[in-house]
């Protein structure tokens, strides 16, 4: 009698399944499990205490968590919109260049070449209330004689973080939208001018619908980026002062490693990931719509 063997397709897929299970699925399940325990890194045996949904219940009544959640959404909204508007403007300016455009495109991408940690340090220095460039410039221009506490006041610190985010990532939008502009045929623009459009109407009704898929790709990428924002904020304010720039992942990291409450942190992380998935799904559906409209063919 012939020995039973795994069917070849299953056998061939098995290595991939095993590797994925070992490096992704098991840790994921473990973290999911631990989010139902009061697991503390300082008391390893707590991982065996099942507390059901207690962590989640606490999260839903925890004002700090929801403020951090809201702040993350706010950062996402402000940063992405600013980046899109600035990126669009940059792309349209760069697209005008017929000579030297390649060099400009390269220069445009410089901010993306720096580690976010370094960007954080750089902007921390620039916004320093004593020796920072920003206050220095404002004082030299005579706009103020105060030392503005950029990284100490909660609102100002949020603005400073937005500036750093926008500086480092506007080029993502600029590059995608520039690609769209370069792929765009000229004739419909001329048709729009003949049809009676002002330059603004031409942009609104012809150029922008064509660029939308490109902008949504950048949106999707950047929404994932900002939803997991950590590094720049960690360096610039560390969520401070007094938690006024705390976003989801700085809060989660603090809970997990400073407070050692890993079970709680994992529960928070699962809620945060839902946020990311929601944004990605939204932008993907928008991308799908925009692409269906423009279709493949001009």
């Amino acid at each position: 009698m012939k020995a039973w063997r795994l069917p070849p397709p299953v056998l061939l897929l098995l290595p991939a399944v095993i590797v994925l299970a070992a490096i992704v699925l098991l840790p994921l399940l473990l973290s999911l499990y631990s989010s139902f325990t009061p697991f503390r890194l300082t008391r390893p045996e707590t991982i065996y205490d099942w507390v059901g949904f207690r962590n989640y219940e606490r999260i839903f009544t925890d004002a700090d968590f929801w403020i951090a959640f809201g702040r993350t959404v706010l950062l996402l909204t402000v940063a992405l919109n600013l980046e899109m508007i600035l990126g669009l403007g940059l792309a349209m300016l760069v697209e005008r260049f017929t000579r030297g455009q390649r060099i400009l495109r390269t220069i445009l991408m410089f901010p993306m070449m720096f580690s976010p940690i370094l960007v954080g340090f750089q902007f921390k220095f620039m916004f320093n209330d004593n020796v920072g460039l920003v206050n220095n410039a404002l004082q030299s221009l005579g706009l103020t004689d105060q030392a503005i506490p950029w990284l100490i006041d909660g609102t100002l610190a949020f603005i400073a973080i937005c500036v750093a985010e926008v500086w480092s990532s506007t080029s993502v939008f600029a590059i995608f939208i520039l690609a769209g502009l370069m792929a765009m045929p000229r004739d419909p623009l001329e048709a729009a001018r003949v049809d009676g459009c002002t330059p603004w109407q031409t942009f609104r009704y012809v150029t922008w619908p064509f660029l939308m898929p490109f902008a949504f790709i950048a949106m999707t990428i950047r929404s994932l980026d900002v939803a997991r924002a950590y590094d720049i904020i960690k360096i610039m304010t560390d969520g401070g002062p007094a938690g006024r720039t705390e976003v989801l992942w700085t809060l989660i990291a603090r809970t997990a490693y400073s407070d050692a409450r890993m079970g709680m942190a994992n529960a928070m992380a699962y809620v945060a990931i839902l946020l990311s998935i929601a944004f990605t799904a939204y932008f993907f559906s928008q991308l799908g719509k925009a692409r269906a409209q423009v279709a493949a063919d001009w």
Binding site: P185, D187, A191, C197, T198, F210, A295, D297, W298
Partner: peptide, 18 residues
């Protein structure tokens, strides 16, 4: 162009794809 009250048919048709 918009103030001239003309219509133009282009070689590539130049329809608005969206």
């Amino acid at each position: 162009p918009r103030a001239r009250n003309i219509s133009m048919v282009f070689q590539s048709y130049a329809l608005y794809p969206h």
